[in-house]
């Protein structure tokens, strides 16, 4: 129980930090970073598109790590953490897809095009959305935690294969980070890093908040069982 008492405090600090960072990030996007020459203002979508995509992959990696820990330690909280990470990951990758699509419409005049990173993100979104549906349907019964862990690992193992196959299929994504410097000016880089940091803080806040909620849910369940036992006596 002790942990749940501390969470609200950490949560408040994290939430405050992410709000402050977001404010700085937004300032950097709108006022600090210069307008890109060829794409114009629309290029500024990049400053939240990229952090969203990055943190969603961190989340999916987190699902895999937590799943490994479930199999290794058998502790329930790793299973809860895997579910929480998957949820935030699906939210972030969904938003990255939406912003990517809008950017594509503005820059290449098409809502959707085949591109390795875009397609990989879409496939991952499908995989982890499916994973969440399976979690909420409680597939597995008593062996549920282990099954979810296996799915979490298998899903992540698929990521590089999806990316390779999508790249072999064909590509037009701007290789922002591939070439050194990537044609970004220093002010643009500051905006990128501040926003990556801000979204990271928000990511941590959401994960912790959701995890705290899962703890509450367990407390409700435990209390219900206690009451049931008492009335039975």
């Amino acid at each position: 129980m002790g942990m749940f008492r501390i969470y609200p405090k950490i949560l408040m600090i994290l939430a405050g930090a992410s709000m402050a960072l977001m404010a700085v990030g937004q300032y950097a996007i709108w006022y600090h970073a210069p307008e890109e020459l060829t794409m114009g203002l629309v290029q500024k979508i990049f400053y939240f598109h990229l952090p969203l995509a990055w943190w969603s992959f961190v989340a999916f990696f987190g699902v895999c790590v937590s799943s490994v820990m479930v199999l290794w330690t058998g502790r329930e909280h790793w299973d809860v953490l895997a579910g929480v990470m998957a949820e935030v990951g699906v939210l972030f990758s969904g938003l990255a897809l939406v912003t990517g699509s809008i950017w594509g419409r503005a820059a290449w005049n098409t809502w959707w095009t085949w591109d390795p990173r875009l397609s990989t993100t879409l496939v991952m979104w499908f995989v982890y959305a499916g994973y969440l549906v399976l979690r909420s349907a409680d597939v597995g019964g008593t062996k549920g935690a282990k099954m979810r862990a296996v799915l979490g690992i298998v899903a992540f193992v698929d990521v590089p294969l999806v990316f390779l196959s999508a790249r072999l299929w064909r590509s037009i994504h701007p290789a922002v980070l591939a070439s050194k410097g990537g044609g970004l000016e220093p002010e643009m880089w500051t905006a990128v890093w501040i926003n990556v940091l801000a979204w990271g803080a928000l990511f941590a806040t959401l994960v912790l908040a959701r995890y705290h909620g899962a703890g509450l849910k367990r407390r409700v369940e435990a209390a219900l069982i206690r009451i049931q036992e008492k009335t039975l006596q």
């Binding site: 629309v42 969203l52 959401l206 909620g213």
Partner: peptide, 22 residues
């Protein structure tokens, strides 16, 4: 410009919706 605005709105609606749900 419009697209930038729409994208920004989508992101904050998404995050806001999730926070409300939580």
């Amino acid at each position: 410009m419009n697209y930038l605005f729409i994208a920004n709105a989508c992101v904050w609606l998404g995050v806001g919706g999730y926070v409300l749900f939580l």
